[in-house]
Design a protein around this nucleic acid. Structure first.
Lengths: 229, 229
DNA sequence: ACGATAAATTCTACAGTGTAGGTTTAACAA
DNA sequence: TTGTTAAACCTACACTGTAGAATTTATCGT
């Protein structure tokens, strides 16, 4: 490990550091991640990093932003309608999570206020607004959508260190109903499962919209039918 | 700090340790939490803890289980119908999260396979099944519901260290639509907001159920009406 | 009553962490 | 040239999780 003489540039900057950090966490996991290991990976003294990033917390933020940026990449050929744009974003988000399963917890845990994140939300809400969804529904949508996305992906990815972990085995005598349903959870972590749940969430948003605009619409009739047992 | 002579019991056990750990994290946060601090709080040598709990990871698991147990407490006077039981559980879960905002990230991050957690899920799915919801819908429900709950609560609680953090301020010229919607996000973290989103999620589940049982029901008509522009 | 065994606690020590503060060098402006 | 600034390195410190061993007490079969 030949150390560079002081004063010479090592070509460090926020982006390079964050990218290397992501690679490192992808490989070794968040637990083993540390400033010193990152420095070694970069062939650099640990303290050099601190000239570009304030501390470990800021380093984690930089990593979050780096992987989030992958989602927005190629947003030009995104579809137009609010449902299509939402589905597109959700799928890109999911793919990113599967690419970086060990980085993803950072995203879900830390508040995302970077320009890339806000721009994506802005696209979402404007599309919804232009489609005529009620303001309250639009205002709730981002928190609701990403609430679901973060929680779901966290759960699905938290098993195995690489990608999807299996559904934990279940004691059939203690929890008979869940045991019965086990076969239906075969595709745990699959795109099909993701789409089913995403559909349900979007359906929830859509129905709130319809109900507000038209009091005798879908949702209400469904309720009425249910009430009639 | 008078140390106890070796051999004498300090009355330690998994529960007492976990409870003390929760108190400590509630007070000082996860970052400052450590085995040594917990030991000092308990008036005990750090290594004593390791005789009851394998390591720090297991300690965090124990804390998760401890706060999760609060949710199930008083489950006897829970309602009966699947929607009521789901709402009841969701609200208890939310209240727990607000009681322990700094512990909650552990719950959302780590897979919960403790008996209390599984028992709660079993109650949920049996109620749904008895109500006649299609199996696939029932099988998806837990992951979908707790996906949303974890992600939403994580987002809402991740701001301030104590309870709810404010919605971050937004640049009105860069993100005009979001800025317009800001007033509608006034109740960020409120029960009202939570209920709105929970309603939407439950509506999503309900509609999937209705659609499967009755192909010409609510959801489908809503789609048709939308297609007619 | 007694010796053996097991359990709970403490003690010691070590490798590893984040980072504050200071030092060195190179590049550049005047 | 000389002074300044930026980027890197070096040293040091307080702190962490925990392995391994020592110590004391309680329990139990005989």
């Amino acid at each position: 490990m030949t150390r560079r003489t002081q004063g010479t540039s090592a070509g460090l900057d926020r982006e390079r550091i964050a990218a290397a950090a992501v690679v490192l966490v992808d490989r070794d996991g968040l637990e083993r991640f540390g400033v010193r290991r990152l420095a070694e990976e970069l062939g650099v003294d640990p303290m050099s990093i601190y000239h570009h990033i304030k501390g470990k917390a800021a380093l984690l933020d930089a990593m979050s932003q780096a992987v989030l940026a992958e989602v927005a990449a190629g947003a030009d050929d995104a579809p137009r309608g609010w449902e299509e744009i939402t589905r597109w974003t959700a799928h890109r988000y999911r793919e990113m999570a599967y690419r970086h399963p060990r980085v993803f917890p950072l995203l879900a845990t830390r508040a995302q206020t970077s320009p890339v994140a806000l721009a994506a939300l802005e696209r979402l809400v404007t599309a919804m607004r232009e489609a005529g969804l009620p303001d309250q529904v639009v205002a709730d949508a981002p928190l609701m959508l990403f609430g679901f996305l973060n929680g779901y992906l966290l759960a699905v990815l938290s098993g195995g260190p690489d990608g999807v972990g299996d559904m934990p085995a279940i004691d059939a005598t203690a929890y008979p109903t869940m045991a019965t349903l086990m076969p239906l959870q075969a595709g745990f972590g699959s795109v099909a499962e993701f789409d089913r749940m995403l559909d349900a969430v979007l359906g929830g948003i859509r129905n709130r919209a319809n109900r507000q605009g038209d009091p005798l619409s879908a949702q209400t009739t469904a309720n009425a039918r249910r009430a009639l047992h």
